[in-house]
Design a protein around this nucleic acid. Structure first.
Lengths: 148, 148
DNA sequence: ACGAAGCTTGCATGAACATGTATCTTGTTG
DNA sequence: CAACAAGATACATGTTCATGCAAGCTTCGT
């Protein structure tokens, strides 16, 4: 009838997604502020460093990094540019394919990540706790945590 | 228990939040593209219209709107400016408090919202389904839907 | 009670920044 | 050479932070 014939869970999906959005906004805002204030880096930078630290040899192709941090390809070009400007990473040519570029983390980048990691973890759990303490989001947080 | 010195659930919180981020990025991207392509409005505009439609008299104070859509105060000033430029809303002075401003939805705004509402609902459910079909996110989506 | 000083609140504006889309450059491959 | 792939760049948008301004509120001296 409507565009698709019949979408049974659409209404509850919408209510559910509204809570996810509220939770996401709440948590991400706190993480952003804490990382910026205590360590001088943004959330995308932190997550990129995290990916690089855990990657083999501390390096990733640009497109791989884009997928892992959930950004577009061009955003990652500039993100790595920022990491380079801050001394946390550099670009390296891919030996086999001269089109390819590796983003490589530096020792300084590893240190900054190690510094910020604790903050991230603490603030994340704290933000989830405060969100879970509100009646509106309690069920959502609990469901996510139970599911692991 | 120990919120500060020792956070037992921190590690799993981090893993869990990574999945929420992936899900959020996936779904929001699809919603953004669908609304922009089919109805020529952004996600924030759609959500603002939704808040206004459901608000008493179709009007909200700027700060109320900011809270509901999860944006900062200045972002909402500009968001309502865009809605005004598109003919979907206008500003009205608050009678009691001359500092206050109401954002009021227009008939045209209500129509555009009614048009886009179906798209939003369908794309949301579809995006949740595709995400839930991946082994990585299946558990997360299921947990959220069960919790409703 | 009056009223002015000082703080707070609600919104607007300008500059900086991050992101997405489209396009361009360069390199690879058939 | 044609077709395609990986990144870089140009441009337009949207978001935030810091700031500014105007209106309400509070307090205190007279």
């Amino acid at each position: 009838m409507t565009t698709t014939s019949y979408t049974p869970a659409a209404a509850s999906d919408q209510a559910m997604w509204g809570k996810v959005l509220a939770l996401h906004a709440h948590v991400e805002r706190r993480l952003t502020q804490a990382l910026q204030r205590k360590h001088g880096i943004g959330l995308s930078e932190f997550r990129a460093l995290e990916c690089l630290v855990h990657a083999k040899a501390g390096e990733l192709r640009m497109q791989e990094l884009a997928d892992k941090v959930g950004l577009g390809q061009s955003s990652v070009t500039r993100l790595v540019g920022r990491l380079f400007a801050a001394g946390f990473a550099f670009r390296d040519l891919c030996p086999g394919d001269k089109r390819g570029v590796y983003a490589v983390i530096t020792d300084e980048g590893k240190e900054r990540y190690a510094d910020a990691r604790g903050t991230y973890s603490e603030v994340l759990s704290a933000a989830l706790n405060t969100a879970g303490a509100t009646p509106e989001l309690a069920g959502t947080v609990q469901a996510l945590r139970s599911a692991h």
